[in-house]
Simulated scan of single mutants.
Amino acid sequence: MSSPTGPPVITLDDIRSAQQRIADYVVRTPVINCEVISKRLGCGVSFKAENLQHVGAFKARGAVNAVMSLSEEDARRGVVTHSSGNHAAAIARAAGLRGIPAFIVMPENASPKKIAAVESYGVSPVLCGPSTQQREQAAAELQQRTGAILVHPFETPAVMAGQGTVGLELLEQVSGLEAILVPVGGGGLLAGVLVAVKTIRPEVKVYAVEPALADDTARSLKAGSPQPPTRYDTVADGLRTQIGDHTFPIIESLVDDLFLVSEASILSAMRTIAEDAHLVAEPSGAVAFAGLIDNADRFAGRSTAVIISGGNLNFGDCQLGRN
């Protein structure tokens, strides 16, 4: 992969337009302030509860924006995508809202719950190998066969702009906000939040958090160019993907820091969110909070927002024990 040059593929205007376009189709998710956790960590902790979004994840935002942005001619062709789960369900839902076909590729190691979610919208996913290359190849073959429009899970600009609406809402919902922690896989959510937040309030710090077993963004930042994943077995299944060509330059230029977290930290964070904030987070959705717990001293006394990116938890897949 090679990073494109030139200006970012999305702007604040794109994100604001997305906010208007998707308003009738997504939830303006609440911010949950948890006094117990805030006292324990020594900072003000506000959870942006995207687990309460349609399809149980922030992906509903980008999918709706992308599908509703299509011309009538393109929409009639339908849409195709590849995803480990949440984006897949989001595209299936968005296509249904517009009344157009959806063709979806999912990795064979996707959560059964997420496969079932796609099927609940009347779409039977095509399964493939877990690597980014295998997903992209299967989606390309499906696109060639159907003539559908590709809506990439994080590289399509309209998807990135839709995800950026999370950042707009946070700035409106949390007064005196000083820091935001965002999980990163392909980088669509992180890139969108960065453009929104850093354009409006550049003094707000934005931190990426990534599983140590899916550290391609960390390695990419060190190398100065997108690096491929080396494995696909982190419990945070939504983050088993490669950082994007379009998302990486935005992240590289705007992110304040990146934290890597262990599998044990992710599982512990899930349990703490459930016990103390009374919210359900899937592993990927708990990654940002794991980063805050592991680096609490960096946030002492600061008003901090943590994005719970999804809540599609399959309880049979992991044990929420203290590790």
Rank of each mutant, 00 (worst) to 15 (best):
M1W: 13
P8N: 11
T11G: 03
L12Q: 13
I15T: 05
D24H: 01
D24S: 09
V27I: 14
T29C: 00
P30I: 11
C34W: 06
C34K: 11
I37F: 04
S38I: 12
K39S: 14
R40W: 09
G44T: 15
S46M: 01
S46K: 06
K48S: 05
K48Y: 02
E50C: 06
V55T: 13
F58I: 00
R61S: 00
A63G: 11
V67R: 00
M68F: 15
M68T: 10
D74G: 02
A75Q: 12
T81I: 07
S84N: 07
A90F: 05
L97S: 07
F103P: 07
I104L: 09
I104Q: 08
V105L: 11
P107H: 10
S111F: 07
P112R: 10
P112M: 05
K113L: 15
I115R: 10
I115G: 04
A116G: 10
Y121K: 01
Y121A: 10
S124V: 15
C128N: 05
S131Y: 09
Q144M: 06
R145L: 15
L150M: 15
V151T: 13
V151W: 01
V159L: 08
A161E: 01
A161D: 10
G162I: 00
G167W: 06
E169P: 06
V174C: 03
V174L: 09
S175K: 14
G176V: 09
L177N: 06
A179K: 09
I180C: 08
P183E: 04
G186K: 13
G186S: 00
V195A: 05
V195I: 15
K198S: 03
T199Q: 05
I200S: 06
V209T: 07
D215W: 00
D215V: 01
D216I: 13
R219T: 08
S220G: 02
K222Q: 14
G224Y: 11
G224D: 12
T230A: 11
T230G: 07
D233V: 07
V235R: 09
F248E: 08
F248H: 02
P249K: 10
D256H: 15
V261L: 01
S265R: 00
I266Y: 03
R271L: 06
E275W: 14
V280N: 01
P283G: 06
P283D: 03
G285W: 08
A288C: 03
F289R: 05
I293A: 13
D294A: 14
F299Q: 00
F299Y: 14
R302P: 12
T304I: 08
A305S: 13
I307D: 09
S309A: 11
S309F: 08
S309K: 04
G310S: 05
G311N: 04
N312W: 03
N312E: 05
Q319R: 09
L320V: 11
